[in-house]
Amino acid sequence: MMNKLSVNHLLGIKYLTKADINLIFETADHFKEVINRPIKKVPSLRDITIANLFFENSTRTKLSFEIAEKRLSADILNFSSSSSSVTKGETLIDTVNNILSMKVDMVVMRHPNPGAADFLSKHVDAKIINAGDGAHEHPTQALLDSFSIREKYDDLKGKNVVIVGDIIHSRVALSNIFCLKKLGANVRVCGPLTLIPKHIASLGVEVMTNLKDALNWCDVAMMLRIQLERQNMKFFPSLREYSMQYGLDKQLLDSLDKEITVMHPGPINRGVEITSDVADSKQSIILEQVQNGVAIRMAVLYLLAGKIE
């Protein structure tokens, strides 16, 4: 079995091979067992220091990375841009190099600009993990989503997955499309055409505009949040209209031909993209996704740390 990643940084799913993804999954299987032990901590990264640089708000991802790092015994530096010198005009490279001169080995970064992680990896001497860069990629989210589907269905090959909602602003959607396709799943997107990127067909993804048809086609539905913070113009008339057309409620879920699995990357806007009774139903694996996120991030950190000279 291959036991090394082909990449030195995790910048996006598009740079990973299928073997890389499977190696991350197999490693995450072991970490999932570790985090369910009475003592949930292993000493693997005790000589590694990791900086978490969040230039954009995050709750789940930041906490998930932080707990993954702690479970691996790494030392952690936390940084968020709202309380930093970035507001005084410091450039990204200067900020990061200042942090690295404190002997940091790995950087987990979330940034509003697409390509920020890639840029950083070319200019600083540390392993970079992209925790979301603008509307570009969010690789660990896609890995944990596919890992959760694999857990439920064993294999993703031939599974039908529909991603519903705000595709155009979603790094989760793009990373998921890359990841699902690499693992052999069939992917479609569904939403109002204003929220679907123009050239999405070039990724081998079909577009559907009727939610019920899309749900009847799929095994798994990933419901995305409407990212109002990234929308500086009107993409649809009102949230109420959106949720009537593209929101998933229990009545719709129960009217389908088969029992599908419902996923959501969080944070949920209850009552907009899905209703509370769907989010909390037995078909939803939203909380499994969160637990798997820790195991996946431990696997990524562990495997990349293995590449530090």
Binding site: M1, N3, K4
Partner: peptide
């Protein structure tokens, strides 16, 4: 050079 591949823990 080659990281070790973990095996299953069953306790």
């Amino acid at each position: 050079n080659n990281p070790l591949v973990p095996s299953k823990t069953e306790m």
